[in-house]
Design a protein around this nucleic acid. Structure first.
Length: 1035
RNA sequence: GGGCGCGUAGCUCAGCGGUAGAGCACUACGUUGACAUCGUAGUGGCCACAGGUUCGAUCCCUGUCGCGCCCA
């Protein structure tokens, strides 16, 4: 059955992928023929994800490396899997719930039921991206598909992996080593999801902001001389003031101010440092006083130079507050609404007053319990509160004002009025990367990894890896890691050298719940759930049972009470009003005096940051903490292929965590690729509407074309701008290969016609030449891939298949299809095409597998075919030289004909006017090909007839009689132009050679090469000159 | 403000010490025994600018000017 006219990608891709899978072609170790292993961990896509261009790019590169190694007989594993993506997934499922008829919220249904919903959703929709990766051709071992939540409590059948065990074990180990701690810190709080997020999950967005200026009156109506001076110390402004002026972008946080700070060198405020001033908002009778302090943070040249310090709602202020022992009053709840809890304002303000006056010291927890939001603002949204605060201050006359001209609308009269001074300026505002809402710095209890303690090995490993890479002594098994391109190593160093503690707790339900239980402090009569969660004794253990045992031991030691037992429970349960052993939320335990009473410990309700678990991806997917065969075999893995945007999120953390946990680097090489942008260079985004969906492109052009485009454009470290034109171009390339195969089919030159896959013993130059070209391509591809130069590999193959095989070899072969060399040529062509399929397979797996299958009976599918080992020994220098001469001659004649407007169909005679032996031999061996491709009908030897055009080649020249056809002026122009160009080149060459310094200093071979070039050029020039001279005689 | 890059043909980009390449676009011609998703030929570049190192610089160094990205 003859081949179809074109490749039907849509039909073949599904069929071929199924064939690979059902043959187990991608299984770990499939096609292994040697000891060496090769392992890549897929960067786990979010379980909520669907394939975007970045995934397509990332996974194409991985697939190329994997298929290439598999064909070379490595014991190969491409480990796939997905990330449970805490926030993203919880968001998706909550959205589903909102659509649901029952209309139950997450909180209404409760934690357990909600988690069951998430798992249900995962079971339904979690495979989306896997199926999309299959369409791309990704050759992952899907039988090993991993999930970062596998094995977690509540996981349904089919999710029994042990990733959860790994995560919990690591948490417990790091906790015990003192690398994980809990503390009340200012964190980035996402009011939409009501959770803390890490610095990396915050996006700074520039927005139009406002800066208000307010007066904080001095306590007791005191006054001071406010003096401004210029650079030379001359007084430029002086007035008596009874206030200090403050600029702020967030008036609503004034309610939580703990101090006003000025720079120690700021003379303007020196007279009032140490005094108290009044926050100009809130009920008059309870206005709070706060101290004026000095700190290095305020910039005397910015605003008024005085800064209000709200430690609980600003990162800079928090630092000042810590240094100055200023209390941090939290003003907002988890939704970023003004707090409505706690004692009435009057009571809270009184306590704060006594603190400001130095009469009282409060513990952190006591400070946190104080709600300083005035009663009329409680429960308001932060922005509503801001409006009211501004109104209140302004109406009281405490806003700094400016004189402004205004025009009365009715009378048209101009008059001056005082308006509040509000500056408009662009400012950076933090937003949640998922929720897109403004982040609120919030003082809360969170868990942190003390990254400073584990960062050093991660830095060291890459320092060593980069040093070895640069020195050319890189060894994949030396226990270090290199990052390519080098630039990204710099980014990595820069971030790790300035690393901040990593906040790993999230106030979500979907995730690995923190394995810490809190029990009451001993020797307290009665306590509450809130108090236990904040101040309780911590028991960190891998299981509930272990935690109970630890607690039992602890309480027995600190408070021997006899028969009582420890029972663990969870926060939800207690909050729902349930009791265990008679103990409830408000009466959780009991001290030693209640000998018969049992103790309740309660588990931390928070879960871990998703990246904490994906940080363990390399070992977790291989079965750690169990000592599995795969772990021993494939770990450390080989290459990580990833985007630059997750160097911090993921790469750095994997490095730190693997080194901290198993004391080994997770991979020896990190290949960092750039971003796929649209054709204008814009980031693809849904809001811009410039997203190219890889699945649409695959449907339109085929997966091979999409893959090849991405690969060809993957110059290391540079963003790629994707356009459909480019993809269409590479789709055409697949068609080209298809049609070359069809030509071979029509001429009985397929593998199935030849009956062997052996390299033929070729005698004809054309065949020896193309065999050498195949070898050259194989060497170049291997070299490029070894250096992760994917674009070089792709472009080499493109140029080889199209530019050498299709453009020349197929054409040369046509006249050889009958005659003495027919059999040899058919065998060579079959072999060459086979090599094309093999070499292209990692890049374009579908069409090559299809052609492989259609062109012959094969022992193995192409996916498992042997990658060739031949090399320079197949390159025949003589054949090379001869064919390049032939190609050059054909091109010269074609060019000349075209410029002389010779009709394409017209066959011309040719006269050899001079030729050396090599030239004669080349002509003799290839005359039919030359005649065919240059459209010649006969060759004679002799002198150039009148009215002929001249074609000069190495070793001689030809004349093509064109009497009557030729336009002499035009031929003169053509020759002159060629000569001119040549003369320019020769001038340069002579210039260099006549420079004694060049001859002395330049390497011998360069000098020699220059001489040769000059000699050849001069010879050609003399022929051209002769031809010109002849034309002049005629014309 | 700090860090990392990039300015090469109309466009998108390779190249990175030996005198400039690809794809697309464009122009002309073309049913030559696979391919019009094609073929043949051609047009098009002071390799951002200015210095320096070198026998020689698009490539290395310094500065200037434009443009990105990341972190404050």
């Amino acid at each position: 059955m003859p081949m179809e006219k074109t490749f039907n990608a849509a039909e073949a891709e599904t069929r071929l992928y199924e064939a690979w899978e059902s043959a187990g072609a991608f299984k770990a170790g499939a096609n292994a023929s040697r000891e060496d292993t090769f392992c890549i961990m897929i960067p786990p896509p979010n379980v909520t994800g669907s394939l975007h261009m970045g995934h397509a790019f990332n996974n194409t590169l991985q697939d190329i490396l994997v298929r290439w190694h598999r064909m070379r007989g490595f014991d190969t594993l491409w480990q796939p899997g997905q990330d449970h993506a805490g926030i993203a997934t919880q968001m998706v499922v909550e959205r589903e719930l909102a659509k649901d008829k029952s209309n139950q919220t997450r909180r209404e249904m409760g934690r357990e039921a909600f988690l069951a919903k998430v798992w249900e959703w995962k079971g339904k929709s979690g495979d989306t991206i896997i199926n999309q990766l299959k369409r791309l051709g990704a050759s992952c071992d899907w039988s090993r598909n991993a999930f970062t939540m596998s094995g977690a409590p509540g996981a349904p059948a089919g999710e029994e992996g042990n990733f959860h065990d790994a995560v919990i074990k690591v948490f417990v180990d790091l906790y015990n080593k003192g690398y994980i701690y809990r503390g009340k810190r200012l964190v980035n709080w996402d009011p939409h999801f009501e959770t803390a997020i890490s610095d990396l999950e915050v996006e700074q967005v520039e927005v139009q902001g406002h800066m208000w200026h307010f007066k904080y009156p001095l306590a007791g109506g005191q006054t001071y001389e406010y003096v401004e001076k210029d650079e030379d110390g001359n007084v430029t402004f002086r007035e008596t003031r009874d206030y200090i002026s403050i600029a702020t972008t967030r008036p609503e946080t004034m309610l939580g101010d703990g101090a006003v700070a000025v720079h120690p060198s700021d003379e303007r405020y020196a007279p009032i440092v140490g005094k108290l001033c009044e926050i100009p908002v809130g009920p008059k009778e309870h206005r709070r006083l706060i101290p004026i302090i000095t700190d290095e943070y305020p910039d005397p040249t910015f605003g008024s130079g005085a800064v209000k310090i709200t430690g609980a709602h600003d990162f800079n202020d928090y630092g000042v507050a810590k240094r100055g022992n200023i209390p941090c009053y939290r003003l907002m709840d988890t939704k970023a609404q003004m707090r409505a809890d706690g004692a009435p304002y009057a009571e809270a303000a009184a306590i704060a007053m006594s603190v400001a006056k130095g009469e009282r010291q409060l513990s952190e927890a006591e400070v946190d319990a104080i709600n300083l939001v005035p009663d009329d603002l409680r429960g308001l949204d932060r922005y509503e509160a801001r409006r009211r605060v501004i109104d209140q201050i302004t109406s009281e006359g405490l806003a700094v004002t400016l004189l402004q001209k205004s025009i009365d609308k009715e009378t048209g009269a101009e008059h001056l009025e005082r308006v509040p001074f509000v500056e408009q300026n662009r400012m950076m505002q933090p937003h949640g990367d998922r929720s897109k809402v403004v982040i609120e710095p919030m003082l809360t209890d969170q868990w942190f990894v003390d990254t400073a303690k584990i960062v050093e090995p991660a830095l060291d490993a890459v320092r060593k890896g980069m040093a070895a890479h640069e020195a050319g002594t890189f060894d994949e098994n030396a226990g270090y890691t290199r990052i390519l391109p080098e630039r990204d190593a710099k980014t990595y160093f820069h971030w790790l050298e300035n690393i901040e503690p990593w906040c790993i707790s999230r106030q979500l339900w979907w995730g690995h719940q923190i394995p810490v239980w809190y029990g009451p402090q001993p020797n307290i009569q009665k306590t509450s759930l809130t108090d236990v969660l904040q101040n309780g004794v911590m028991f960190c253990a891998a299981t509930e049972r272990d935690a109970e045992r630890m607690a039992e031991e602890f309480y027995r030691k600190h408070m021997p009470w006899g028969p009582g037992t420890v029972t663990s429970t969870d926060v939800e349960f207690l909050r729902a009003g349930e009791k265990i052993n008679g103990l409830s939320q408000d009466h959780m335990l009991v001290s030693g005096s209640y000998k018969e009473t049992d103790v309740l410990i309660v588990r931390d309700p928070d879960v871990l940051d998703t990246w904490f678990s994906s940080g363990l991806w390399p070992i977790g997917t291989l079965g750690w903490p169990e000592d599995t065969e795969e772990l021993r075999k494939y770990f450390p893995t080989d290459v990580l292929v990833t985007g630059f945007d997750i160097i911090f999120f993921w790469v750095a953390r994997m490095m730190m965590m693997q080194l901290a946990v198993v004391d080994q680097v997770p991979f020896h090489t990190v290949y960092v690729h750039a971003l796929v942008r649209d054709e204008k260079g814009k980031k693809m985004s849904k809001s811009l509407g410039n997203v190219l969906d890889p699945l649409d492109l695959i449907a339109e052009y085929g997966a091979d074309a999409v893959r090849f485009t991405l690969t060809a454009m993957a110059a290391m470290g540079r963003d790629l701008k994707l356009s459909k034109d480019r993809i269409a171009g590479y789709r055409n390339f697949t068609t080209k290969l298809w049609n070359a195969t069809r030509f071979a089919e029509m001429n009985g030159a397929l593998r199935r016609d030849i009956g062997t896959a052996e390299l033929p013993q070729a005698t004809h130059t054309v065949n020896r030449w193309i065999i050498g070209e195949v070898a050259r391509a194989r060497l170049a591809v291997d070299e490029a891939l070894s250096a992760y130069r994917f674009n070089d590999a792709a472009n080499t193959l493109y140029a080889f298949v199209w530019g050498k095989v299709c453009d020349w070899y197929v054409e040369f072969a046509k006249p050889l299809m009958d005659g003495d060399q027919a059999a040899e040529t058919r065998a060579t062509m079959a072999w060459v095409l086979d090599q094309c399929y093999v070499l292209l397979h990692p890049f374009m797996p579908f069409i090559t597998e299809e052609l492989w299958g259609q062109t012959g009976e094969r022992a193995k599918m192409l996916v498992h075919a042997d990658w060739p080992a031949y090399g320079a020994e197949l390159i025949d220098a003589d054949a090379d030289r001869e064919m390049n001469w032939v190609i050059g001659l054909i091109e010269e004649i074609r060019s000349a004909r075209m410029q002389m407007h010779v009709p394409a169909g017209l066959k011309l005679p040719i006269v050899m006017t001079a030729m050396d032996d090599k030239g004669r031999a080349a002509w003799a061996g290839n005359e039919p090909m030359i005649a065919r491709l240059a459209r010649l009908d006969s060759m004679t030897e002799g002198t150039a007839p009148k009215g002929a055009i001249t074609v000069a080649v190495e070793g001689g020249s030809f004349a093509i009689p064109l009497e009557g056809v030729i336009d002499i002026a035009e031929e003169k122009a053509r020759l002159s132009k060629t000569l001119e160009k040549l003369a320019k080149d020769l001038g340069g060459l002579r210039g260099r050679l006549s420079n004694p310094k060049f001859v002395d200093s330049a390497p011998e071979e360069i000098v020699e090469e220059t001489r040769e070039k000059l000699a050849l050029g001069e010879e050609e020039a003399s022929k051209l000159k002769a031809a010109l001279a002849r034309l002049s005689e005629v014309g």
